[in-house]
Amino acid sequence: MAIAKADINLCKGCRLCVGACPVDAIEPLHEVNKKGYEIIRIDENKCIGCGMCYVMCPDYVFTVE
């Protein structure tokens, strides 16, 4: 089954994906990436591969495959 993968180096910490996920599989973290933005993590057990995070993300962090 397809699941979402995140390239957290591109993330800018806007948290729009957290609200767009229908199964609450995206968890906001307080860790930061190289650019200094707070990142997210995908719970692979919960993800259903619907692609809503891909549609919402303005920075192209997500790939669904």
Binding site: K12, G13, C14, R15, L16, Y37, M56, C57, P58, D59, Y60
Partner: peptide
């Protein structure tokens, strides 16, 4: 663009 900007979408 800034984080959360609609231009990226």
């Amino acid at each position: 663009w800034c984080g959360g900007c609609g231009h990226g979408i």
